[in-house]
Amino acid sequence: MSDVQLADWRNHALTLESEVNKVVVGQQTPIRLITTSIFARGHVLLEGDVGVGKTTLLRAFTRGIGGGYQRIEGTIDLMPNDLVYHTYLGEDGKPHVSPGPLLMSGENLSVFFFNEINRARPQVHSLLLRVMAERSLSAFNTEHYFPHMIVFADRNQVEKEETFEIPSAARDRFMMEIPIVVPNDDAIMEALVFDTKFHNVDALVDTVKPDVLQFDELNAFSSVIQNSIEASDTLKKYALNLWKATKTPLDYGVKVSGVDMNRLVLSGASPRGMSMMLRAARVNAWLNNRNAVLPDDIHAVFHSTIAHRLVFSPVYEMRRTEIAREMLSGIVNAVSAP
């Protein structure tokens, strides 16, 4: 029964990927990673410039998995209650309260997109992180639950003015940080500019086949994946060595050009980070029609699940993307299995 279920859901997942790939072109890797995070039930931090298609991507996924999609823009004057409710004067001249983005879809909320999260104040981060961790919220003397919600947050990496950097503890709550970059392929770039179907986002998203997956079944099926895909002793040892290497890269002979490796890493990957990495690796193995995790599955999610968790010395923080990429590549090259 389980094998049939796994195969059936895999077909749905691949159909979803295919549908999204039709709408958002040249982003196969981010789409695979987002599919992975959906089935691993992990929140995602998106990294990329403005106008590269992040919103379109998320809306396309939401249409495919069903459920509610909500979005909020991070601004410096955004307050935590702005996520929960709005107040306004009604036609009757009386004050009214309506649900904010978090409460709008109720329990059916499946994708919550926080755009430019680093423009919001730490109080807002705090509320969002609680919602991400517990998938619940107390408001109006009621406990609200969002069991199917996945948070996607985007942070503006270019502009640093009037921004609040997300602390490492907050970054650690996200399963993945996925870079979204403009494709290099000239044909794709030309299509994005000249093909009119990409000009109307609403119409474009409407072309995605709706409800390919059932958002309210994802939690249960995620458990099936995690319980079905095995990890051998050799793989566990390999994952442990990778973890150790993130803490003390120099012990594994990993070096980054122009960086004092003795001072670089203040803290390696966390236990939560490693468990999220393995969850994602299991999903990747399942998507590739395997019953067990291979090192290749770990490699497929290693950068996106670990890079944003590393805590570097402040002096290297400005170059963290480049340094983390080089360091993690060095770790993959240095640690062997078996």
Partner: peptide, 23 residues
């Protein structure tokens, strides 16, 4: 058999000067 496979993996890694995987 495991030791033999491990020896060949080691040889691949030493030749490539990095860990060689299927990917």
């Amino acid at each position: 058999l495991k030791q033999a496979i491990s020896a060949v993996h080691l040889a691949f890694n030493q030749t490539a000067k990095m860990s060689v995987f299927n990917d």
